[in-house]
């Protein structure tokens, strides 16, 4: 039998039951991208994995060879877990949403360190979320994910004339950029300068919880909707957790 291969540190993104006692674990490896592996007897015995195969945790992983198509998890040890004992449903929705976004963006055998670090930050943000701030946190996750994917519109300059957006902006009807006051079309809803500054801070500093929590609430709804549209266009299939998150947002 060949010796296990070290996969290094991985994020546990998805866990699905397989048969009576096994699990299929989807990992995001900093070095190897998305990896699916079978955790044999993970549901019936705690001998091999103990409690270390938790969703939304960072693990050190060694892979072995199985008889099937997928590799088998040989050993795992937990480095850190973001969602603890008293996790709330809102936190679960947010962490799941980030996990699904990361899955959409990841590929097998394709290292993506920025995506890996983004997901760590997103889970950290989800773990710190409290009732009433779900909306800006979701927006922060969307904006920074678009940035990691290279899909975030330019928040500094008008997409049409190139003028600096120092008095707020409006979304362009066509395309995915922002327009200055002079180039604004029709009655598009205006993005205030304070909101724009918040988005720029997120873009520059990444998923900073303080920036996300202090996004101005006024005028955020239209930005949220437009950013959510950009995310929906970028992912190939609708996200299951987006439905749950929408419902949680309605109660937030």
């Amino acid at each position: 039998m060949s010796s296990p291969t070290s996969l290094g540190s991985c994020l546990c993104v998805r866990v699905q039951p397989l048969g009576d006692a096994d699990l299929i674990v989807t990992l995001l490896s900093a070095e190897l991208g998305r990896v699916d592996a079978v955790a044999k007897s993970a549901r019936s015995s705690r001998k091999r994995f103990g409690g270390s195969l938790r969703l939304f945790s960072e693990l050190d992983v060694n892979l072995g060879h199985g008889r099937g198509r997928l590799p088998v998890l040989a050993t795992t040890s937990e480095r850190r877990a973001w969602l603890g004992d008293s996790v709330g449903y809102d936190q679960l929705c947010l962490a799941s949403y980030a996990a699904e976004l990361a899955l959409c963006a990841s590929q097998p055998e394709h290292a993506d360190v920025p995506l890996y670090l983004w997901l760590c930050d997103a889970w950290s943000l989800a773990a710190g979320s409290v009732q009433g701030v779900l909306r800006p946190l979701r927006l922060a996750i969307d904006v920074t994910w678009l940035r990691v994917m290279g899909l975030l519109p330019d928040l500094e300059a008008c997409v049409r004339c190139g003028a600096h957006l120092d008095e707020g902006a409006v979304w362009a009807h066509a395309g995915q950029g922002l327009l200055c006051r002079n180039c604004a079309e029709g009655s598009a809803q205006r993005i205030g300068l304070d909101v724009l500054l918040g988005l720029r801070a997120l873009s520059a500093r990444g998923l900073d919880a303080e920036v996300a929590r202090h996004l101005p609430s006024a005028g955020l709804r239209s930005v949220e909707e437009r950013v959510a549209q950009l995310v929906a266009q970028a992912v190939s299939t609708p996200l299951r957790s987006a439905v749950a998150l929408r419902a949680a947002l309605a109660n937030d």
């Binding site: 409690g51 938790r54 969703l55 939304f56 004992d85 996790v87 709330g88 449903y89 679960l92 962490a95």
Partner: peptide
């Protein structure tokens, strides 16, 4: 169950 999803379900019932 003592898992993230089991805990979140327990927390939801608590609420």
């Amino acid at each position: 169950s003592i898992s993230v999803e089991g805990e979140a379900t327990a927390s939801y019932i608590q609420s």
